[in-house]
Amino acid sequence: MDAAMPTLEVKGLRTHFFTKAGVVKAVDDVSFRVGRGEVLGLVGESGSGKSVTGFSVLGLVDPPGRIVEGSIRFAGRELVGIAERQWRDIRGAKIAMIFQDPMMTLNPVLRIDTQMVEAIRAHEPRIERAEAHRRCIAALGQVGIPSPEERLRAYPHQFSGGMRQRVAIAIALLNKPDLIIADEPTTALDVTIQAQILYEAQKLTRETGTALIWITHDLTVVAGLADRICVMYAGRIVEEGSVDEVLDNPLHPYTRGLIGSVPGRNKRGSPLYQIPGMTPSLIRLPRGCAFRERCREAVEACGEPQPIVHPAPGRAVRCCRCSRPGAVQ
């Protein structure tokens, strides 16, 4: 792979759901790129479209949803519009995914070895059973599961939640993918397990050069893990930048709200900040900024479609107030 070419480049992606109530614009003009070995944090609250973005990249959007516009280029190759058969060769082999709830992602009635070997066989039908087993054991060992040979013969219900998530990660690693999409993989786990999983993820990207898209609503998780952050709101990316810049100097009022609502040591005793109001319905999005109704700094110009502005190199924000000179301190 060309070093300069990003592993994944998404441009102007729109994924809409055509329901009886109307068109739900779950993802509306989203663009981002992830380079080799890079960790991109996709942050937003529930319903902001971050999971649908992840599923779009794998071609796994359930009907009535579909990608209506945009381009998803993986290692230079366009994925939007390719046949199901070609998707199948990419899923699990080039791009793997980890889901939110480890209790639900493994099939309860199939043994771990069955579920792992089939992931290899799907892409290498002629591989020998012993060789496939050896790779499964190696993958389980890589994510820190003790005595992997024995655990291979177990059923999912014989594992704890954290162990199951490790198995899911091991399955994602089996075919050495170039990109892993992790959809809130630590949300359902307790904090100590979460820390272990994050450590494994970090180690993985450093050792193998696998790119990682980490979808989460938890800013504290991406703070220690991601290289870059995209903040999503109502189907759009409202702010993008390196993790330090965005967290230290948030430009979009929504990002500031998110950071302000994280409990911290220096805020003890004072009431925690809440963003007023609720996320808007994705069926009837306003013409202008979707955050306008909840924004304390809204002005007349917010009623117009918001352009993406680049107040500094490597930073982007979708807010007209940030285009003023001197908006970035």
């Binding site: 796994l60 199948r88 995914m97 889901f99 709830d101 992602t105 099939n107 992931a119």
Partner: peptide
């Protein structure tokens, strides 16, 4: 509709 089905598809199964 279960997650395990989506996960199975995400592994590249037919």
């Amino acid at each position: 509709l279960m997650d395990y089905v989506k996960f199975a598809y995400a592994k590249g199964l037919s």
